[in-house]
Amino acid sequence: MPVPASTVVHPAWLRVSHWINALAVLVLATSGWRIYNAAPFFDFRIPNEITLGGWLAGAVQWHFAAMWVLAINGGFYLLMNFCTGRAWRKFWPLTPRALLRDVAAALRGRLVHADPTHYNAVQRAAYLFVWADLALLVLSGLVLWKSVQFPLLRELLGGYESARRVHFFAMAALAGFVLVHLVMVALVPRTLVAMLRGR
């Protein structure tokens, strides 16, 4: 069903928060890759050309500055989502049945985006996954930054070295999400417009 042009898809606070988050994630990922390169635990390095910071100290400075942007903006995003009731309106309900149905439809190229104010089950699952993944990145990041000061968190993540891997894989999962997210936006460019101007 077509939506009137005046319908607000994304309120201003959400759009601002989304773009701040995108910038924070970009800075954190690219500087994090540089930090990874200082002591890679896999048999590969990230090309320095796509990293941020110039050298380890610079990358650490960027990483530990952008973490505040991510944390404060993320806190604001969650607070607003729950205070305005958007969290329930947009993400509830999410049933396995609906998810399977929409995944099947998406794979057949038949998932409709007629109403941009409504998230289908695949979108709901994907965005909630990113909430969880970002939370895991923040928590594992806390252990890497201050492993002695957060003993419970450290032990829950299996110790310092294990937390490094958790942080890396959570980053990889986020990068994977961003990739799919951008492809979807390319397929339905209207969603980008909605995230920019709200309608």
Binding site: L26, T30, R34, N48, E49, I50, T51, L52, G53, G54, W55, G58, Q61, W62, L182, V185, A186, P189, R190, L192, V193, L196
Partner: peptide, 29 residues
Amino acid sequence: MPAPTRRLFLRRGLTLGGLTLLTGCAITD
């Protein structure tokens, strides 16, 4: 802003890509 087309998306995308390429020394210095 021009009309909301795929071109807009591509241009935004390129700007974002350009930002990531402005790495290391360029920004940090």
